[in-house]
Write a protein that binds this DNA or RNA. Structure first.
Length: 270
DNA sequence: GCCCAGGGTGTTT
DNA sequence: AAACACCATGGG
């Protein structure tokens, strides 16, 4: 397969920014290490991002001026980091190691669908299944397959999803897709509703519980006050790496990502 | 073989 | 409301 690197652009960013941590820390499942950088498909386009001193090199289909927004480079993470560590000094340990990670601005359906797949699953297998889903029914684009539209997934049979390894989640995936495709779940509404109501709309769908709802709101709609509680974060709370005070603060989701990435990197070094 | 993974649902205490 | 079994699947 040949990739036509038609264009490349540079996006300035803080030198400390962690591109790898941001793309590979389990908030998105479509990136992989490639030639010193990271290749993947987002916003309907294949690109490879490579971090240089003070900027990100974006090669491939880099049209559209969407990547600075995707990486959330306009948000002041120094201020966020200062605020959450002031709220809980114990968090400084995680922030010191993983505090250069940002919350991606993914497309809401991709985030929701990916985290429905994520339940009781591990990151490697989530990547595998999400990739197969795109190959199964995503639009063919230069470099691979785009994430499928909700209408496309809503029309799939549960059997076809079981065949690509979705297991018992097949029905949940179709249910979520149908809720979106039929307008019962509107991302425009979820974006502006009070967070508790947005959560309630999401968890009303069969297969979406509180954790997946918070992931959809945090990673798909950039509601930074959401605090997804997976097994790792529950463990971190029990061990005192992060406190409930942070979990209920306005940048709870950012702090949560610091802790999640911190635990992962620590675990890999053991 | 057992345990675990970015959980949720339904049932039983 | 809290504890529990069950849900597919693959890697360790």
């Amino acid at each position: 397969m040949s990739i036509n690197i038609s264009e490349s652009i540079k996006i300035s960013c803080p030198e400390g920014f962690s591109l790898g941590g941001t793309l590979m820390s389990g908030q998105c499942f479509r990136w992989s290490a490639d030639g010193g950088g990271f290749a993947g498909i987002a916003n309907g386009r294949w690109v490879r991002m490579t971090q240089q001193l003070g900027y990100i090199l974006v090669e491939g289909d880099s049209r559209g001026d969407v990547w600075e927004d995707y990486l959330d480079l306009a948000t002041d993470y120094d201020a966020i980091r200062a605020e959450v560590t002031a709220l809980d000094p114990r968090l400084a340990q995680s922030a010191a190691i993983s505090g250069q990670v940002r919350i991606l601005r993914q497309q809401p359906w991709e985030a929701l669908c990916s985290f429905v797949i994520s339940q009781n699953n591990n990151i490697g297998r989530i990547r595998l299944i999400v990739g197969r889903l795109c190959e199964l029914c995503g639009r063919r684009i230069d470099g691979g397959f785009d994430f499928p539209e909700p209408e496309t997934v809503a029309a799939l049979s549960e059997d076809s999803l079981t065949e690509i390894g979705c297991g018992y989640r097949a029905g949940y995936i179709v249910a979520a897709a149908q809720a979106v495709a039929q307008g019962n779940l509107s991302f425009d509404q979820l974006r502006s509703l009070p967070v508790d109501e947005a959560r309630a709309r999401l968890t009303a769908v069969r297969g979406i519980g509180p954790k997946v709802a918070d992931c959809a709101l945090l990673y798909g709609l950039h509601r930074l006050e959401c605090f997804p509680r997976d097994v790792w974060i529950k463990r971190a709370l029990a061990e005192g790496l992060v406190s409930e005070a942070v979990a209920h603060s306005r940048y709870a989701g950012v702090a949560q990502q610091f802790v999640f990435e911190y635990i992962r990197t620590q675990k890999n070094q053991r």
